Amino acid sequence: MKKMKVSTILDGSHSLMNDVVVGTARLLEDAEIVLKIDDLLKERGITQQDLALMTGMRIGTVSQIVNGKGISFNKVQLLAIMVALQVSDLSELIEFRLPPETKEKFDNNSQEWKETREMPFELKELYRDNALKATVNKLK
Rank of each mutant, 00 (worst) to 15 (best):
K2Q: 13
K3D: 13
K3W: 13
K3I: 13
V6F: 04
V6P: 01
S7F: 06
T8L: 12
I9C: 01
L10M: 01
H14R: 12
V21L: 09
V21Y: 08
V21Q: 11
V21T: 13
G23A: 03
T24K: 07
T24I: 08
A25K: 04
R26N: 07
R26Q: 08
R26Y: 12
L27K: 12
L27V: 07
E29W: 05
A31K: 02
A31L: 04
E32T: 07
E32G: 05
V34L: 05
D38A: 06
L40I: 04
L41N: 00
K42H: 03
K42C: 04
R44Y: 07
I46P: 00
Q48V: 07
Q48G: 12
A52E: 00
L53Q: 12
M54Y: 09
T55P: 01
T55D: 02
T55Y: 06
I59W: 05
G60N: 00
G60V: 01
T61W: 06
V62K: 03
S63N: 11
Q64Y: 14
Q64D: 15
I65P: 02
I65Q: 01
G68I: 03
K69G: 13
G70H: 10
S72T: 14
S72Y: 12
S72P: 08
F73P: 11
F73G: 13
N74R: 02
N74T: 02
K75D: 13
K75Y: 12
V76S: 09
Q77N: 06
Q77D: 06
L78T: 06
L78M: 14
L79N: 10
M82Q: 10
M82V: 05
M82F: 07
V83L: 14
V83F: 15
A84I: 04
L85N: 03
L85P: 01
Q86R: 14
V87F: 10
V87Y: 07
S88G: 14
S88D: 15
L93H: 00
I94W: 01
E95T: 06
F96E: 02
R97F: 05
P99Q: 03
P99C: 02
P99F: 01
E101W: 10
K105Q: 14
K105R: 15
D107I: 15
N109A: 13
Q111P: 05
E112G: 09
W113P: 05
K114Q: 11
E115T: 08
R117Y: 14
M119H: 07
M119E: 11
F121N: 10
F121G: 07
E122P: 05
E122G: 10
L123H: 00
L123P: 00
L126E: 04
Y127T: 09
R128E: 12
D129S: 08
K133F: 08
K133P: 05
K133T: 09
A134V: 07
K138F: 15
K138L: 15
L139T: 14
K140Q: 14
K140D: 13
